[in-house]
Write a protein that binds this DNA or RNA. Structure first.
Length: 419
RNA sequence: GGGGGAGUGUCCCGAGCGGCAAAGGGGGCGGACUGUAAAUCCGCUGGCUAUGCCUUCGUAGGUUCGAGUCCUACCUCCCCCA
């Protein structure tokens, strides 16, 4: 887009320099607001799971930079919209979450934001409203009269998200058609309540955000703005944050810190520079130096990426510990006590556990059948010795320093600890 | 309302004469090669108390020694006509 635009504000300068900017409704308008120091911006987050995952990291980082450059970040919890259920996944028979589940998820998600943003009562302190506050009390008739009349169905039909569905003859439910109305209304409500003038989000949110701006104009808010970030994929085209083992969760109780560190450590060469810019606070000059490293030296950059990104979510100490565990495990071949640990009953171990079962217990494989196949392929190791006999049993004799080290492939290790 | 078509291995796409744990991809996982990368090559990709047993092809019945495959009803989606 406007590559020739020269931002005057630190906020936009940072976003552009680090690769966060995909589209903006009015660069100069946002720039002026940011420069003046009264930019209040929000991003909405779903409460469908009890943790956010790596996919949400990019928007969170945008809020972080906003705060660092003098703006006020507003992460909005979708407590209300989640009750309706985002219908975008096509024939995903979406199970409606109970209100209790949503509230529990919300509480769990909140913790993560504390790592990235400073909350409080001051001007640039973050606040975290929940759209349930205003959505759940809406009256249908009133909503139609006050808000619904401002929506032009003609215009909504012309929007990409809708048009593509219609052109492909795919089902578009009424509720989904309404989703953008609710989101647009959020924007207006946040403006009235908190003076929020900018909504950010992924590039897929563009249409919804612009609809909010439009609604705002009709309902008499000041000029509102939209800003989106690019859709993130790895250099090989895979979606960020999903692996076969599951999503890369941000909460430590859903994914061990060590595994989180490993996720970043295994970044593809071609992504290192981009990810350093997006997911760490390192100065851009430093990143330029790191991404220029060639051959095996790029691994140093990956370790820095992993540690910095992990420190952001889990704290510096935990990140250093993960880095240290990795160094011992991979570079020195030593069993580090801080590898992810799974407890087993001591009595069970003394009686002997089948190797296959042990690997299932450790969570390294999903079933004994899979374990069996991995044995055939030479993928399982106990205390760094390949498993060849699937009928073998683990006993107390296999304990080394009080634990049994189980490995799947070269990278995944779990310690089995009797208790 | 009438006519036509479709729903397959719980990641996705997709073949499937009445003998089917079900072709082929993609994705994923393991192995080799490397640098814990990419690319490439090879293997695996329903479950279990495992030379056998159990569960899978929209749902429920039926025909048959035997049904993903044939019949009936129902559900959902798509197309054409009204």
């Amino acid at each position: 887009m406007s590559a020739d635009f020269k931002p005057k504000s630190d906020f936009l300068a940072t976003l552009m320099e680090r690769g966060f900017l995909h589209q903006c409704s009015d660069l100069e308008g946002v720039d002026a607001k940011a420069k003046a120091g009264d930019l209040i911006a929000y991003i909405g987050f779903d409460c469908t799971a009890s943790s956010l995952h790596v996919g949400s990291l990019l928007p969170i980082m945008m809020l972080r930079w906003l705060q660092k450059t003098g703006g006020k970040p507003v992460p909005l919890m979708g407590g209300g919209t989640t009750r309706v259920g985002d219908p975008s996944g096509k024939d995903e028979s979406r199970k409606l979450l109970t209100v209790e589940q949503i509230d529990a998820n919300k509480e769990s998600i909140k913790q993560v934001f504390g790592r990235f943003l400073t909350f409080g009562p001051d001007k640039t302190d973050a606040i975290m409203p929940d759209n349930a506050e205003w959505l759940t009390t809406l009256n249908y008739i009133e909503f139609l009269r006050d808000v619904g009349r401002h929506f032009s169905v003609n215009r909504m039909l012309s929007m990409d998200s809708v048009r593509m569905r219609l052109e492909r003859d795919q089902e578009l439910s009424f509720i989904e058609f309404n989703y953008m109305c609710l989101q647009a209304y959020d924007f207006v409500e946040l403006n009235k309540r908190y003076g929020c003038i900018l909504q950010m989000g992924g590039s897929d949110q563009w249409g919804n955000i612009v609809t909010g701006i439009d609604l705002g104009r009709r309902m008499g808010t000041p000029q509102l703005y939209a800003l989106t970030s690019p859709l993130l994929t790895t250099a090989s085209g895979a979606k960020m944050g999903k692996t076969a083992a599951g999503a890369i969760w941000l909460n430590a109780d859903m994914l061990p810190v060590y595994d989180y560190w490993q996720y970043w450590r295994n970044t593809e060469d071609a992504d290192v520079g981009r990810f350093l810019r997006l997911f760490t606070d390192l100065p851009v000059d430093e990143i330029r130096r790191l991404e220029a490293l060639g051959g095996a030296e790029i691994n140093e950059a990956k370790k820095i990426l992993a540690t910095e990104a992990t420190a952001m979510v889990h704290g510096r100490a935990a990140a250093d510990a993960a880095a240290d565990t990795a160094r011992k495990t991979f570079e020195e071949g030593v069993t580090a006590a801080s590898l992810p640990t799974v407890a087993v009953a001591a009595s069970e171990l003394s009686g002997g556990i089948g190797v296959l079962t042990a690997f299932v217990k450790a969570g390294l494989v999903a079933s004994t059948g899979e374990a069996r196949r991995q044995v055939k392929g030479g993928g399982l190791r106990v205390n760094d010795v390949a498993v060849t006999d699937e009928k073998a049993a683990l006993t107390a004799a296999d304990l080394a320093d009080g634990v049994v080290k189980l490995s799947l492939g070269k990278k995944k290790h779990v310690l089995l600890k009797p208790e």
